[in-house]
């Protein structure tokens, strides 16, 4: 779901960069001393996950993990994903430097939405927690596809067509990510519940 260099028009790239910069600024404020190591580890996880590709349909798919990065970091997902995407662009020419802002938005905004939607569900019951984890993975990919399609619509044909293509290619990924995220949330809850946003109820 990386958008390559030279695909998008100038205004889209500019708006994307500005919004990503704003999100990163907010994110850096929320990243206090204790959260830095975690943000770096999640950034590294995201960085590696996007490199492992499995051929499927007309293109390739890979784990994205943006939903769970968002759930665990909140606004901190912006700087974490910015660093990971920057390195992917520089080292592997995935995406591109000019499209970096847009690509950060594609990944971080769904993560942030997941954070606000699902963090309260983590502490009610085990079933809800699993559902929240699955929702993170699923929605993270779904929203990322929609944002990517919205960014592409200006340079490509119709929104529905582009969105359909991207989403169709990622339907399996949504489910895989959902399962991965659900098991991840369950695992973290078992070994270190304080990592999940909100903390255990007192």
């Amino acid at each position: 779901m990386h958008i390559s260099e030279g695909v998008l028009s100038g205004p889209v790239l500019g708006a994307g960069a500005a919004l990503a910069a704003a999100g990163t600024a907010v994110g850096l404020k929320t990243l206090d001393y204790e959260k830095i190591a975690g943000a770096a580890l999640l950034a590294a996880g995201f960085f590696v996950a996007s490199l492992i590709h499995v051929p499927l349909g007309p293109g390739n798919v890979h784990l994205i993990l943006n939903g769970i990065v968002g759930l665990l970091l909140g606004w901190g997902a912006f700087p974490a994903l910015l660093v990971a995407l920057l390195l992917q662009a520089v080292l592997f020419q995935y995406g591109g430097l000019t499209a970096l802002g847009v690509n950060v938005l594609i990944m971080a905004v769904p993560g942030l939405v997941c954070y606000y939607l699902f963090r309260s569900m983590l502490w009610k019951s085990a079933r809800l927690r699993i559902a929240a984890g699955f929702g993170c993975g699923f929605l993270g990919v779904l929203l990322a596809g929609l944002i990517a399609a919205a960014a592409l619509v200006i340079s490509e044909e119709s929104f529905l067509e582009v969105a359909g293509l991207i989403l169709a290619a990622h339907v399996p990924v949504m489910f895989i990510e959902g399962i991965v995220s659900a098991s991840g949330v369950a695992f973290i809850h078992k070994v270190q519940p304080s990592l999940l946003p909100g903390g255990p109820p007192r």
């Binding site: 492992i52 590709h53 499995v54 051929p55 784990l63 995935y94 991965v180």
Partner: peptide, 17 residues
């Protein structure tokens, strides 16, 4: 945990044309 999840995936393709 992240590495555990990723381990079985096959490093097959890149995302570039």
């Amino acid at each position: 945990w992240i590495l555990f999840i990723l381990a079985p995936a096959i490093p097959a393709q890149a995302h570039r044309v």
